[in-house]
Design a protein around this nucleic acid. Sequence first.
DNA 1: CAATAAACGAGACGGTACGTCGAGTCTTATC
DNA 2: GATAAGACTCGACGTACCGTCTCGTTTATTG
Lengths: 211, 211, 211, 211
Amino acid sequence: VESTSGPARPHTGRRRNEAVRRAILDAALRLLAESDGSAVTTDTIARAAGVGKQTLYRWWPSKGAVLLEAMVLRAEAEVPTPETGNLRADLTVFLRGTFTAATRYRSLLLGVLREALGDPDTYVQLERFAASRRAVLGRILEASHRSGGITSSDPIDTVIDQTFGLLWYRLIFASAPLDSGAAAELVDALITQLQPSGRGSLPSDPGDGRL
Amino acid sequence: VESTSGPARPHTGRRRNEAVRRAILDAALRLLAESDGSAVTTDTIARAAGVGKQTLYRWWPSKGAVLLEAMVLRAEAEVPTPETGNLRADLTVFLRGTFTAATRYRSLLLGVLREALGDPDTYVQLERFAASRRAVLGRILEASHRSGGITSSDPIDTVIDQTFGLLWYRLIFASAPLDSGAAAELVDALITQLQPSGRGSLPSDPGDGRL
Amino acid sequence: VESTSGPARPHTGRRRNEAVRRAILDAALRLLAESDGSAVTTDTIARAAGVGKQTLYRWWPSKGAVLLEAMVLRAEAEVPTPETGNLRADLTVFLRGTFTAATRYRSLLLGVLREALGDPDTYVQLERFAASRRAVLGRILEASHRSGGITSSDPIDTVIDQTFGLLWYRLIFASAPLDSGAAAELVDALITQLQPSGRGSLPSDPGDGRL
Amino acid sequence: VESTSGPARPHTGRRRNEAVRRAILDAALRLLAESDGSAVTTDTIARAAGVGKQTLYRWWPSKGAVLLEAMVLRAEAEVPTPETGNLRADLTVFLRGTFTAATRYRSLLLGVLREALGDPDTYVQLERFAASRRAVLGRILEASHRSGGITSSDPIDTVIDQTFGLLWYRLIFASAPLDSGAAAELVDALITQLQPSGRGSLPSDPGDGRL
DNA sequence: CAATAAACGAGACGGTACGTCGAGTCTTATC
DNA sequence: GATAAGACTCGACGTACCGTCTCGTTTATTG
């Protein structure tokens, strides 16, 4: 009933079954959680969802896209984006939530990453997702900046990339846990870093000749 | 039988032929550099190296392992590990070198990462490599610590993971370049972060400011 | 959800493409006819048939099985099994047809034999085929026997094995042609052999004492 | 600088080790007897003989040639070639011996056959061997012929091919045993066949239609 | 008794074919 | 017309075996 001019053919054919979409996303998620990741094939996803493979490809362009959508859905559902204006508080909430969710969906994220590294389309999508996450963090940092104590704005990109970098790095290499302690430490570090350098010395970087 | 990698490589028996090993590693490197990464198959590596596929599998357990060894070799050859004791100088040299090499061998690194995410053996090896890189940076940071200026030592792991995290994150997502400017910015950030939390700039305070 | 009363699920999904089956069999046949036999690989068969290798292995367990089925098909299509009751006539028609077909498909038959000697599955199938051919000839001989002139029935197995033995022997070693002349000679020989021994002499085996 | 008067340098260096030759032949034989034939590779033969692979290829041109020589050796050692002039006796001894030996070395013979079907050189050698065996049988048949009772000589080739055909056919397909009983039956059959046609006894028609 | 030459055990090597696995497309029958 | 089942094409993977090549050693012949 979406035409404003009243279609003679109100609707032909079966509609897209929303339950099927959820089943596929859930199956992908579940398989990634349960198995080692090498068992997540298009066939197994389809079978686990009780779905034909073609249905999968009718709605997503590739396997990676399915994983990606599952990931985005999780990210949006689980990660808070509080903007109270209090830098330390906002940052803590955001990072704690992000780290927790990332840890829970580690194999999902790494599965998506793997796909993205092999498939340009998925890569672009994942890049977009990463950019949107950066934007969220950027907004938190800038909000605090505007509302108060922070004057340095140039190195914000570095700070952001350090943050998500640490996140992905620990996801990949598991060099240390991504728990609340890690979040707290990182919050301190970022705040220190963003404050005006106590030393009067400004890093006099004269421009680096970017390509 | 056109070995694209140069001179007649005499075919030694009984002992492992070192020239063959080099030819394979070189071919893997070259293919990753020249092509989009999807063209790097075991067949193409073997053919480019003028080598039978079996020889490849005689010495490496999988394709990923070959890429990995090529990567480790590059890392060791290209990245300096200066330990003069001057934190800022050492850090700058190390990060600049690391960033430059990583950028040059981006497709190699990402190729290895992709393989590692799909093959447990390769993953373990890559993890080991990452740990050894962390150790190098750790030694630089701790050396400076012992030799003077810095007293805070607890959050070193966070600093290290932030550093390599930023490196890998930018390799993957290309959110910003990994050039000398980035290195310089990061050096400042890390030093700030490692200094005593006294914003009143009192390095005499041995407290570490952790909450 | 297993029904105890047979297949509740008659058939779902795409059906086997008969054209593909024919294409594979034809390609195998053609390649064996055209080339020296060493060029008949699974890859070339699949490529010549315009088919993925996987399809080949979906329906046949090995390369030999494909050749075998091609052979059986030819045998059934080309060799007449006349049973008029007239021994000499029936035998002549059968042997002439068999010899002609065998000669035409010599490389096919030898290719199958080679595969069978290396692969137990193919061997079993070939054995079955040989048995069915023996049965056909056996029926001809026994039909004539029942309908008339021949009384000796015991040595029929020997006669049969001599016949197919000569066929295979000449296919393999090409010691003499397998033409109509050869068929005629063999017919005479077999009829003579099956008739009651004109001499009253029984072969008195003296025993030679060898193990 | 080749002397026309033979080699000025009669022999330098180590001589061929006869024990090695035997070890290789024995190993080939043993492996064929023990295993299913697919386990008889150049590597396993060499290893079983305690010999380097190169030694094998120093003296034989291919794997098939090794098997072939083992076979010929066995044939010469085991099969008697009696020529007393008594057709029935000679034939019985010859066939009994041949059948017994062939049965004992079945896997050897079939292994050789398999190699020959894939390797032209081995094929030629095997063909030569088969021809020499035919010649032996031919001499027995002709000797008897010359010495007396048999007048028909033209179909000797058919008789010979029927005989060895039955031998190989039963080796391959195991349709019936190759024991003394089989030999006795075959002797009767061949003698009957070679005698002047006992029924109407009209040897007056010499035309057989062969080209 | 050295120097030389060949045979030898070992096993790395180049190459060809094999049979398997997964991605994404196409077809059939059903709902 | 959307769906479940599953057959299809394509291409990469890792393995097996062949026959060649070289190493380092042993054994015989020659100077």
